[in-house]
């Protein structure tokens, strides 16, 4: 089933909305940093590369075919600043599999914004998206990222050791996942009817 969400998506403190051409500077402010790109597949980006990244993201708003991505800018309602992005990838149409990811500006870490935005994305995936299982992965050393996955109610399904090379070193990777019925149980607890 294709997914064409209506934007923006709103949470308590955040607005999840499509990227626009005006976002290049805000994206460059965090994607230029080594500490942000350390566990991403990309290296630190130049301003031109950020412009290209934003250009690509402007069109990534719907899931129509396997491999499609929805990538949304996360805006803080308090000051209107772009503080990061969240993404949802359609990994398998037949088995209804999705993958989520996130990148946040370190200046805004520690306020639960990533958790809030990622939860909204899970609601999109499991609700209108009718996805059955959502996975996320990160480097084992990226503790803030896998702690976030645990806060989202995801289970650690894999711990791969030296299964690939990542930035010229042996990679060690976690894969976390949550099933539709687990998400349903979590949301049921939070909003009793």
């Amino acid at each position: 089933m294709s997914l064409y969400p209506v934007y923006p998506l709103r949470t308590e403190r955040l607005t999840l909305r499509p990227f626009t051409r005006g976002d290049v500077d805000a994206v460059y402010a965090y994607r230029r940093r080594e500490d942000v790109t350390r566990y991403l597949f990309d290296t630190a980006l130049s301003r031109e590369e950020c412009a290209l990244a934003v250009q690509q993201r402007i069109g990534q708003l719907a899931l129509e075919a396997e491999g499609d991505k929805i990538i949304l800018g996360v805006e803080l309602d308090d000051n209107g600043a772009l503080i990061g992005e969240v993404s949802l990838i359609w990994r398998s149409v037949e088995a209804r599999q999705g993958e989520v990811g996130w990148i946040f500006d370190p200046n805004y870490h520690g306020h639960g914004y990533a958790t809030e935005a990622a939860n909204a994305l899970l609601d999109l995936a499991f609700g209108p998206g009718a996805i059955h299982r959502v996975a996320a992965r990160c480097d084992v050393r990226n503790e803030p990222s896998w702690r976030l996955m645990e806060r989202l109610g995801m289970r650690r399904e894999a711990h791969f050791r030296e299964h690939a090379l990542f930035k010229s070193q042996w990679d060690e990777e976690f894969i976390y996942a949550i099933l539709w019925q687990e998400w349903q149980a979590l949301r049921g607890e939070q909003t009793p009817t």
Partner: peptide
């Protein structure tokens, strides 16, 4: 061998 992954309902 070490158990490295236990996927649930990840495919058909």
């Amino acid at each position: 061998m070490r158990l490295e992954a236990h996927y649930r309902e990840h495919a058909l």
